[in-house]
Computed example of a mutant assay.
Amino acid sequence: MTWRNGRLYLVLFVTFMLAGASTTTGIPLHEWLGLVIFAPLFFHVIWRWKWVVRVFKPSNRKRPGQTTFAKWFNLALFFTMLPIGGSGLMISGALLPLLS
């Protein structure tokens, strides 16, 4: 892992932890942090797009166990974050009050 990756992962982790602590941050900050976290996540996917294509491309070669685990773990995270973010936007009271 490079220093640039480490910084991005640290920012994502801290933002995610703060966004999850709605009792500490309050609902408005919780909703804004939840929205803000999608920018670095989107940047991360674009930044790692070559890896995504390479790992999900069918291959006859056996991949290392760590790569296979990372592939399925990242896919699970992606499909977990989509409905969380979508439902968060739909029930938002502070961020998008016109939608509620």
Rank of each mutant, 00 (worst) to 15 (best):
M1F: 12
M1C: 11
T2R: 04
R4K: 13
N5V: 11
G6Q: 09
G6L: 02
G6P: 05
R7L: 15
R7V: 15
Y9W: 11
L10S: 11
L10A: 14
L10G: 13
V11F: 03
V11C: 11
L12E: 05
L12Y: 05
L12M: 15
T15V: 12
F16C: 05
F16L: 12
M17I: 12
A19T: 02
A19H: 08
G20L: 13
G20C: 00
A21F: 08
A21S: 10
S22P: 02
S22R: 15
S22I: 02
T24E: 13
T25E: 06
T25S: 09
G26R: 11
G26D: 00
I27H: 11
I27G: 06
H30N: 06
E31R: 09
E31N: 07
W32T: 04
L33R: 10
L33I: 08
L33M: 10
L35W: 09
L35S: 03
L35D: 06
V36S: 13
I37G: 03
I37L: 11
A39M: 01
P40K: 08
P40D: 00
P40T: 03
L41Y: 10
L41G: 08
L41T: 00
L41N: 03
F42E: 01
F42L: 14
F42Y: 09
H44D: 08
V45C: 08
I46T: 04
W47M: 13
R48C: 12
V52R: 00
V52H: 05
V53H: 04
V53E: 13
R54D: 14
V55I: 10
F56P: 01
K57H: 00
P58I: 02
S59G: 04
R61G: 07
P64Y: 08
G65H: 03
G65I: 07
G65T: 13
Q66L: 08
A70Y: 05
A70E: 11
A70I: 12
W72E: 05
F73E: 09
A76K: 06
T80S: 12
M81Y: 07
L82A: 05
L82P: 10
L82G: 02
L82Y: 02
P83F: 07
P83Y: 00
P83D: 00
G85W: 03
G86N: 01
S87I: 08
G88D: 03
G88T: 03
G88I: 07
G88K: 12
L89E: 00
L89T: 07
M90R: 15
M90K: 15
M90P: 09
M90D: 06
I91G: 09
S92K: 10
S92T: 08
S92V: 04
S92E: 01
G93E: 15
A94K: 14
A94P: 05
L95Q: 02
L95V: 01
L96G: 05
P97C: 00
L99R: 13
L99V: 03
S100P: 12
